[in-house]
Simulated assay, not measured.
Amino acid sequence: MKPSSPFVFSTGTIGYPILFVLLIWIVFWVEVRFGVSFNSYGVRPGEMMGLRGILFSPFIHSDIEHLFNNTIPLFILSLALFYFYRPISWKVLLIGLIASGLLTWLIGRPANHIGASGIIYVLASFLFFKGIFSKYYRLVALSLIVVFIYGGLVWYVIPIDPSISWEGHLAGLITGFSLALIFKQNIVEPPKYHWENPEYSEENDPFMKHFDENGNFIENLPEEESDSEEVQYNYIYKDSKKEE
């Protein structure tokens, strides 16, 4: 019997990332349409009022370029999170949002820190390190894709541009790595076949009866022992292995 895939595509897999993107664009539209600014709702380090930015800042962007630069990585990385890590996706998002925002509040410069880049760094860091820890080829491949597309993000966790909240980026990177460690036990295990099972032995394999002691395939089994769908599948597999 073939193992079922651990990865499940559902409506929420693509629906939630689309919702996140719509929310940040709606907030920006409200600012432009009604001539208001929500910048004061960002994370303001060292101020008690600035703690509200932990929840609000990811939805606030300074201009259209800032918004556009965050839209695509937010969609792609959250899509990957909900597809590959659906059981823990909301925990990663909520804990990542709060932890990275709080860390930004603790280490940031006295200014308004706004934008979804903090949560983007949480997702990129989590997906990369979780895939490496898994040692599962699909998730390792995901890690390599993240590095290939977003590897340049690592330069923005140091103060190379005074107008960029590198503290928020660094907080996101640290938070994502920490979450990959915390949820290490929730890594999807690759499916094990019977030859990978430590308890497997040829003596208790019911399909070995299709071969004689010299490894030759027995074409004419007694009628009562032959030819269920599962038996056919396995002795065809065994025969192909012998030919190798």
Rank of each mutant, 00 (worst) to 15 (best):
V231A: 14
F56H: 11
S89H: 02
Y16M: 11
P3H: 11
L221H: 05
V8Q: 08
Y85H: 13
F9Q: 04
L181F: 15
E223C: 02
L67F: 06
I120V: 15
I107Y: 00
S89D: 11
F84T: 06
P190I: 00
G176E: 03
G176N: 02
I18V: 14
L81W: 07
Y83T: 07
W25E: 06
I236R: 07
D205A: 11
E219K: 13
L23A: 15
Y121P: 09
G152R: 08
K241M: 08
S37V: 03
D239A: 09
R44P: 00
P162Y: 06
L23S: 15
F38L: 14
G35Q: 09
P206N: 15
E219I: 07
R109P: 00
T13K: 07
S40V: 07
W105H: 07
N39W: 05
F126D: 12
N112G: 01
W25Q: 12
L106T: 02
N220S: 11
I132Q: 05
W25Y: 12
I26F: 09
E223I: 04
G168D: 07
L19W: 09
H194P: 09
N186R: 15
E65F: 05
F129C: 03
Y16D: 00
N39R: 12
S117L: 03
E196T: 03
V147Y: 02
S57N: 00
G53Y: 04
I98R: 02
I107G: 04
P162R: 07
V231G: 00
V157P: 06
F59A: 07
W105D: 00
G53M: 02
A171H: 02
Y235H: 02
G53V: 06
P191E: 05
S37Q: 03
Y156A: 14
L144E: 00
W105F: 03
I54L: 12
G215F: 13
G96A: 10
M48R: 05
A116E: 08
S78K: 09
E189S: 13
G151W: 08
L51M: 12
D227H: 07
I54G: 10
M1N: 06
F56E: 07
S201F: 08
R86A: 15
A180Q: 12
G101S: 04
K242T: 08
P6Q: 07
F211H: 14
D239H: 04
E230M: 04
I60Y: 00
D212A: 10
R86I: 11
A124T: 03
L22Q: 10
S165C: 11
L127H: 02
F68Q: 13
V122Q: 11
S178R: 01
S78P: 14
V157Q: 04
L127D: 01
W195P: 05
F34I: 05
W166M: 06
V27G: 04
S178P: 01
R44H: 12
H169D: 15
H210L: 14
T13N: 12
K242W: 03
V92N: 05
W29A: 15
I164F: 08
E213V: 05
H61G: 10
A171T: 00
S163V: 12
P17E: 05
P162E: 12
S100T: 09
P17H: 08
L102Y: 08
L67W: 11
M1G: 15
Y16T: 13
V92R: 10
Y237R: 06
Y137G: 04
T13P: 10
W25F: 13
E65L: 10
